[in-house]
Amino acid sequence: MTLGEKLRKIRKEKDMTKLELGTALNVPKERIKLYEIGEEEPSDFYLTSFAKYFNISMDELLKEEE
């Protein structure tokens, strides 16, 4: 599972839209989409923001799963 797929999975598990997540983290929903489909990689700042928001470790967020 890629980082983008993991972000999408976590967002869906929290029953959030891209707009809701983007609003919560001050990220445009279009950027969330690019992260999820793997066309853009989040900066370290946003990776940290995602981890804190979803209450998971950076290791858990970045660990590639099959």
Score class of each variant (00 low, 15 high):
M1A: 11
M1E: 10
M1P: 05
M1H: 09
T2S: 10
T2A: 08
G4E: 00
G4A: 06
E5K: 10
K6V: 01
K6D: 01
R8S: 07
R8C: 07
R11Y: 05
R11T: 03
E13V: 08
E13Q: 14
K14I: 09
K14E: 14
M16H: 03
T17W: 06
K18W: 06
G22C: 04
T23C: 06
T23A: 12
N26C: 06
N26T: 07
V27M: 03
P28L: 05
K29Q: 06
E30N: 13
E30M: 13
I32K: 00
L34W: 03
L34D: 04
E36L: 05
I37S: 08
I37W: 11
G38K: 07
E39N: 14
E40V: 11
E40G: 02
E41P: 03
P42C: 06
S43V: 12
F45I: 03
F45H: 03
T48Q: 10
T48D: 09
S49I: 03
F50M: 02
F50K: 00
A51E: 02
K52A: 14
F54I: 07
I56E: 09
M58N: 14
M58V: 14
D59M: 08
E60A: 15
L61F: 05
L61W: 01
L62T: 09
L62I: 08
K63N: 13
E64D: 15
E65F: 10
E65H: 14
